[in-house]
Design a protein around this nucleic acid. Structure first.
Lengths: 203, 203
DNA sequence: ATGCTACGATACGGTATCGTAGCATAAATG
DNA sequence: CATTTATGCTACGATACCGTATCGTAGCAT
């Protein structure tokens, strides 16, 4: 019966039937609104440019209420960062090269279009000085390397790669250049570039 | 006759003999002290954590004087960032693989030990929202990719690489994985990893 | 002696920010 | 209807920060 707001990000996994909602529906609404606006502000201004006052103004949720749900600014921002990002789908097309081509295209597409990628240096920087933030980021990062490991291991199982392949190194060889282009050299992430990286990595 | 302070960073190129020092020696001293302390603070707290008041406190240079030399905080920080970093030496050992091995070792060594690398995400983040900062960073970045391009082109000239080699892509394939490990996956940057990356990139 | 240049010390105006207190209000629950 | 719960609103206190203004001084050259 309850109208689900667009995001279920903050919901803890709930046993299906017997509800007994420990938190009011209003809570979920407030939290969702706050998290959404926080993410927007993160994209616009980066981690250190986001203020709680501005979140309150823009979300329509009173600052008081925000502090009723998060103990402080850092926790709120970490929470928002944790739900940033869109998951990669893991392809399964039968061949290593096919899977990697699809995955790399997906990934580079995300790097170039998704708004939230602009805030990643900000998050990493925060993690450079905040252990909890670093841990949060680590989980985020793993979500993106996991599909690569999966398709690589499948390729190994099919004998398309030698059994002694260094998987983390291969993941680095594939995704590293994309990160590099996006944030360090700032050259365009073209389709041709991605193809070239795959060619180099797989021979 | 003038006693040179440790750093000549801020000095404009000066015609050798007839001096006529447009800036006092005191100026050089103040600026050097301020830039040094600013760099330290950048390493500790990142771009947005540095305040002019703190720079003044720690350097012993009055805030007034700081604002006599830089128009505002952003310019000061950009100036400090521009002089951060240590240059790579370009090896010339006669073979592509030898040059790249030396260069990559040098580079990964720097990524893991140099204090200033911890502030790079901060700089990049600032660049996401500040054009001048982005331009400053671009020059910094080019200083590090240039040696790679040089040794690769020399290798091409020697016929160790096909003439149609995509140089920027190869640079990305080599350095990207190092960046990736240092900032994104945070796995250790071991010698074995570097060797593996070279093997993948050169076959 | 007289400038000139650069600097230091202090204080200030104005703004932004975090996090909290007090009180009123709307809605769900019994 | 009464009670509990979650929220809204306004106003603070405290701190930090930017950038400037004012006044006084030290060193050096003429």
């Amino acid at each position: 019966m309850r109208k689900k707001t667009s995001s279920e990000q903050t919901a803890a996994p709930v046993e299906a039937g017997q509800a007994a909602p420990v938190t009011d529906d209003r809570v979920r609404r407030s939290k969702a609104a706050v998290l959404a606006v926080t993410a927007d502000l993160l994209f616009e201004r980066g981690y250190s440019g986001v203020s709680v006052d501005e979140i309150a103004r823009r979300s329509g949720v009173a600052k008081t209420t925000i502090y009723r749900h998060w103990p402080n600014r850092a926790d709120l921002l970490r929470d928002a960062c944790a739900h940033v990002g869109t998951p990669l789908t893991t392809p399964d097309l039968g061949s290593l090269r096919g899977d990697l081509t699809a995955l790399m295209a997906d990934f580079s597409q995300m790097l170039t279009t998704a708004r939230w990628t602009s805030v990643l240096p900000s998050i990493i920087d925060a993690g450079e000085r905040d252990a909890e933030m670093a841990e949060m980021y680590r989980r985020l990062q793993q979500g993106y390397s996991a599909p690569f490991e999966t398709v690589i291991r499948r390729g190994m199982a099919r004998g398309e790669l030698p059994a002694e392949t260094d998987v983390p190194a291969l993941v680095a060889a594939l995704t590293g250049p994309l990160f590099y282009r996006r944030w360090f050299s700032r050259e365009p992430l073209t389709e041709g570039f991605v193809r070239e990286i795959i060619r180099i990595a797989l021979g």
